[in-house]
Write a protein that binds this DNA or RNA. Structure first.
Lengths: 335, 335
DNA sequence: GTTTCCTATGTCATCGGTGACAGGGGGCCG
DNA sequence: CGGCCCCCTGTCACCGATGACATAGGAAAC
């Protein structure tokens, strides 16, 4: 393996100075046509490729984009990463990924690491804690999915309150009066907004909310499954603990709940969840969801970040992407 | 925002030379205890963090690891990426991801880009084409999921032939004689080995293979769903086109097939697929699969790469991870 | 007391490019 | 024909760290 050739080698072969070769490399117009030709020829013959690290050092900033989420394997975030990477690849920008596991300290650590790598920009799905340590003037920043406490920056999300309200209203319209809520930790704005939507839909229809049917704080699919078991048990024990429909506030929760309902053959209970998932249409009945496309969010975030890199001065924007109900059957079951 | 402090600033505050500060930073033992103390104190007071780009330039190599797969959003690869990132984070190594969309040219491009960034090592799920352009002496390299044509490097995979053989044998033991094969493009070793396994199981049991039941070349879940529809239609038309079980060679295909079977209420047809997926246990009957854990593969790949970075001279290894049948019902249906 | 050696620290060059600025040479103008 | 300007190219310094090598000063050895 011959060592990678450097720009000096090119310059020498072309018989020009390093600086001139550099100008050709950077499409500087003030280079005579034939000189440019010789340099380009030399580059080809040496199979020259510029060293990104050296350029980054001189430029003071890298071309790489950092992407920080709580879990890469989460289907929603995997979609987002995929579309961000695809969009960034079009601009020749590599993407660094990191996961936080919902741990504030870890989030801070991985972000700091990226900053020391001088990433050109960051896309971040914030954790629950305060993010004042991350000053947005320090690096171009786009948030996804939820705002970050103590941080003003571009944000791409869906209207969580409304998505939940729509889902619950859908169930109410189909005749349900006692609807269980199963959701994620309400320390995250995404989650409490969905809970708000659930409550708002009830209030607007003059329906009371039974406290024992509201079950936030399910951090994993497993916990959600446990909660579902518990809800069913209570409903069986006491007549007044009953419910005819379930609203799941997150995909994670849905993936726990649906198997429980099916394992118990409780297809008499209506179900609507936020977040689509693979195979949702494969059940009988199909699973009705309010979908927010990860791919769309990723694309919007990538576009926004590229814009901000081009023109750092622009005003902070909050982009709301639409979320719509996909009716597949489970949400249209009547009590 | 004060600009990030540099090592010279630290040196100045501590009243030592740049070089001495550098020695402290690198735990060089030949520094007097009190000098070290002053420097560390200065680092803390300036909140100093070394510039990773400058270090990379000087060192000739970056600490970053590159990860290249065909699609980041693929559930299997998302698992792998997640575990690789988690493992690498423990070693303080950032991870760059890139997707190839199964396009050789694109694969070559993203890998070259990573090399120009001087990544410390690469983990690669090869595409179908020839990979001779990527010399393994150029960068520490670990392959996952399948070998690469024209390339000798560490490889982490499962025994695809055997996994398929096991799955099909499982069906045969449950009394099936006519088993359909639905799989992915057979240009990829992963895929044709699974087809081999399917054929081998039949041969060992003295069973003939009906050509019209062997359906490779389903690149997407959608195509697999179409193929399943077609198989069912033919079986309904001609008596001899019938089958009592389906073997799906990839998760992608399974995700297409299962909904079709359930939509048509064909739960009389047995099913076994390679690759587990979310909700597989939620169906009635649950979906029997041969599982190969993406997390395990990612962890093994990360460990292997770290080993190779530590000791570049080691012999190339081929690590086979176990894959085991998870019986959930669909594979235990009798004809 | 001188030589030797070692410890702690410093100076200089370097990694591979790019910014700032200088300067030679030809064309155009007065 | 001198002066001005512009086009093209070159020299030098620098981005932030580390490798190679040098050196002051004291301890150990003779």
């Amino acid at each position: 393996m011959s060592p990678a050739s450097r720009l000096v080698d090119v310059a020498q072969v072309a018989g020009v100075s390093l600086r001139t070769a550099s100008r050709v490399l950077n499409d500087d117009h003030r280079v005579a046509a034939d000189t440019r030709g010789r340099v380009l020829q030399a580059m080809r013959s040496l199979n020259f490729q510029p060293d990104a690290v050296a350029r980054s050092l001189r430029a003071g900033t890298d071309t790489t984009i950092g992407f920080v989420v709580e879990a890469i394997a989460d289907p929603f975030f995997a979609d987002v990463i995929d579309s961000v990477e695809t969009a960034m690849a079009r601009h020749g920008r590599p993407v660094l990924v990191a996961s936080t596991r919902r741990d504030d300290a870890r989030a801070q650590q991985v972000v700091q690491r990226m900053l020391h790598r001088r990433v050109a920009g960051l896309i971040l799905a914030p954790t629950a804690g305060d993010h004042a340590w991350l000053s947005p003037d320090r690096v171009p920043l786009v948030l996804i999915d939820r705002p970050a406490a103590g941080l003003t920056a571009d944000l791409i999300d869906i209207d969580d309150r409304r998505a939940a309200d729509d889902a619950v209203t859908h169930l109410i319209r189909h005749g349900h009066r006692r609807i269980a809520y199963v959701g994620d930790t309400s320390s995250i704005p995404t989650s409490w907004r969905r809970l708000e939507g659930y409550l708002a839909a009830h209030a607007r229809h003059g329906l009371p909310v039974a406290d024992h049917l509201v079950r936030p704080e399910n951090a994993s699919s497993r916990e959600a499954a446990g909660t579902m078991h518990d809800l069913l048990r209570r409903a069986a024990e006491a007549g007044d603990g009953s419910f005819t429909a379930v609203f799941s506030a997150t995909t994670r929760a849905s993936v726990g709940i649906v198997p429980v309902l099916h394992a118990r053959s409780r297809t008499d209970i209506a179900f609507v969840g936020i977040g689509d998932f693979a195979m949702a249409e494969a059940f009988t009945p199909g699973i009705t969801v309010v979908d927010h496309s990860g791919a769309r969010i990723g694309e919007a975030a990538a576009d926004r970040l590229i814009d901000r890199l081009t023109d750092p001065g622009r005003a902070v924007e909050h982009i709301r992407l639409p979320a719509a109900i996909i009716q597949r059957g489970s949400g249209e079951i009547r009590p």
